[in-house]
Amino acid sequence: MADPRYPIVEVSDGWELTEEGVETLFELPTMSVRGASRRYEDRAGRDGLAAATDPPHDETLRFFAATRLTFEPGLPPGTLPASVLPSVRQQARQRFKQRLRDRGVSRVSRDRSERLRVDGSRVRARSYTGTVDTSGGYALPVEGWLAAWHDEDFFVVTGGYPAERLADVFGLEGAGELLSTPPRVYRDDFFDFLRSVR
């Protein structure tokens, strides 16, 4: 079977594509699940914080990733995608929690969920919270989101962002708008990007 096509994502200015690739993500009892992923980073926010801190705090602050899935072999005739989706969600949650830990997020816990529409499909997104202990001794609270759904294809979307204003966490007096952005704006950006995935 051919590799999945890359998802199309619309992100804002200041974001950049940092990685893309196709890989086997996990195994289900009768098939392998492969994904074509694109990962993005808020480069403007990262550069802004690095310029405002001494020593520079130069780490990923906000990220967004979208993956289109395919199955090898394909789904058996008569198999409803809805019957496979719970297994996809479970595996995606495990992988996402591990990716958060790999990014240095500790005390990862599941939080609330939201329902929304993506290109006509009903999608439930689940949030996860945790903390990153930075090299400068700051504790940066973070919130991550995961959504997995099916329309004509299967998609998995993840993202994360600071759960407090960066200026407050890093004690930056008179920080500009970029570093004083409230977390709800980051959250709205995530959901806007998610709705753009196709």
Rank of each mutant, 00 (worst) to 15 (best):
P4A: 04
E10S: 14
E10Y: 08
S12P: 09
S12E: 15
D13H: 07
G14Q: 07
G14C: 03
L17G: 02
L17F: 01
E19V: 03
V22P: 11
E23D: 14
E23T: 13
T24N: 06
F26N: 08
L28K: 04
L28S: 02
M31R: 15
S32G: 07
V33Q: 00
R34L: 11
A36R: 01
A36D: 01
S37E: 09
R38P: 00
R39I: 13
R39Q: 10
R39K: 14
E41N: 08
G45I: 00
G45S: 15
R46W: 05
R46Q: 15
L49A: 06
L49I: 07
D54N: 13
D54L: 06
P56K: 13
P56C: 10
D58Y: 10
E59Y: 11
T60D: 06
T60P: 06
T60M: 13
R62S: 15
A66N: 03
T67N: 03
R68S: 14
L69H: 03
E72M: 07
E72I: 12
P77M: 04
G78M: 09
T79W: 00
A82L: 13
S83W: 02
V84H: 04
P86R: 05
P86S: 08
S87E: 06
Q91K: 11
A92G: 03
R93W: 01
R95P: 00
F96H: 06
Q98E: 14
R99A: 15
V105K: 00
R107Y: 06
R110A: 13
R110I: 07
D111R: 15
S113K: 09
L116P: 05
R117S: 12
V118Y: 01
R122P: 03
V123T: 05
A125K: 04
R126L: 12
S127Y: 03
S127N: 05
S127L: 01
T129D: 08
T129K: 13
T131K: 06
T131E: 13
V132M: 00
V132G: 00
V132T: 01
S135E: 13
G137A: 10
G137W: 03
Y138E: 14
L140W: 08
P141L: 09
P141V: 02
V142A: 04
G144Q: 02
W145D: 08
L146S: 04
L146M: 14
A148V: 12
A148P: 01
H150S: 04
D153G: 09
F155E: 02
V156Y: 01
V157T: 12
V157R: 06
T158G: 01
G160K: 01
G160V: 00
A163P: 02
A163I: 03
R165T: 11
R165E: 13
D168F: 03
V169D: 04
V169P: 06
G171E: 10
L172G: 09
E173M: 07
G174A: 08
G174I: 12
E177T: 15
S180T: 15
P182H: 05
R184V: 15
V185P: 05
R187H: 05
D189N: 11
F190M: 05
F193C: 02
L194Q: 03
L194C: 02
S196V: 08
V197T: 11
